[in-house]
Computed example of a mutant assay.
Amino acid sequence: MDNPATEGKSFDKQDLAILRLLLADSRASLQEIGKAVGLSTTSCWNRIKRMTDSGAIDGYTIKVDLPKIGYHDTVIVQVTLESHSEETLDEFGRALKSIPEVLEASLISGDYDYFIKIAVKDTRDYERLLREKLYKIPGIRHSKSSFVLRTLKKEDTPLTS
């Protein structure tokens, strides 16, 4: 079993530099990465393979500009459930996974149980989503919604520079 106290300690400056480059452009060639970090392509490939095998690199993807595909608004929803039983939490989590507009959902501490980030086309679309999807999930006691007015910073990892 992994020990959280030792996670990340096997990554040196060059590993982190490789990760930064891949975060900026996951299609960068081994030659481009090697040149940027001062390593051979074979050394880069070995490091990337090791980080992939260890799970530090979880996959490769693209970034989508949501407004350009019609999702102009982001809503932060905080939800409190009636019950905190394992069954209720699991059922709520499964229901959230089935809603494509849910971008992120986290079980949190504090006054609310869940922090949910949702992409919608506009306020009418959000109202539809509430009525047709979110409020049909059993066990919601209370929710609070806030529309994001402007995103000041958005990163997936603290390594991005």
Rank of each mutant, 00 (worst) to 15 (best):
Y126T: 03
V120K: 07
G139W: 03
A56E: 09
H84I: 03
Q31C: 10
R131D: 14
K68T: 04
L16D: 09
V148P: 01
L134G: 05
I99A: 06
K97S: 11
L129W: 02
L130G: 07
A119Y: 03
V77N: 13
E155V: 09
T123W: 13
D90H: 09
D113A: 06
K63I: 05
D2G: 10
K97T: 02
A56L: 10
D53S: 12
M51S: 08
D15E: 04
S29D: 05
A119L: 05
V102C: 12
R131K: 15
G70N: 09
K13N: 11
E87A: 15
T151F: 09
P138L: 09
L21D: 06
I69N: 04
S145H: 06
V102S: 07
S29M: 10
P67Q: 04
S98W: 00
L23M: 10
A5E: 13
R50F: 02
I62F: 07
S161H: 12
L39F: 07
D90F: 07
S145D: 10
L22M: 12
A24I: 00
S29F: 05
L152N: 08
Y60T: 06
D58S: 15
S10G: 12
M51T: 01
T41A: 15
R124S: 13
T88C: 12
Q14S: 12
I116T: 01
L129Y: 01
R50H: 08
L23V: 08
R47Q: 07
I108H: 11
L81H: 01
R131Q: 13
G8A: 04
D53P: 07
K153L: 15
Y114N: 06
K68R: 12
F147H: 08
A119I: 00
G59M: 03
T6P: 07
K9D: 04
K136G: 08
Q14W: 04
L39E: 06
I137C: 02
K117E: 04
K136C: 14
D2R: 12
I99V: 03
D73R: 15
A24N: 03
R47G: 09
Q31L: 15
W45M: 15
A105W: 04
S161Y: 01
D156Q: 14
V37F: 06
H142Q: 14
P138Y: 00
A119R: 01
D25G: 00
L130K: 14
D73Q: 12
R94S: 13
D156G: 14
L149D: 08
K144W: 01
L66G: 05
S145N: 11
M51N: 10
V148H: 03
I18C: 12
P138Q: 00
R50T: 01
R128A: 13
I69F: 08
L30D: 03
H84Q: 12
A28S: 10
V120G: 02
S43H: 03
R47S: 08
S146L: 11
E132K: 15
N3F: 02
V120P: 01
H142I: 00
A5M: 14
Y135K: 15
L96C: 09
K154H: 15
G34H: 07
G139I: 00
H72K: 11
E101R: 13
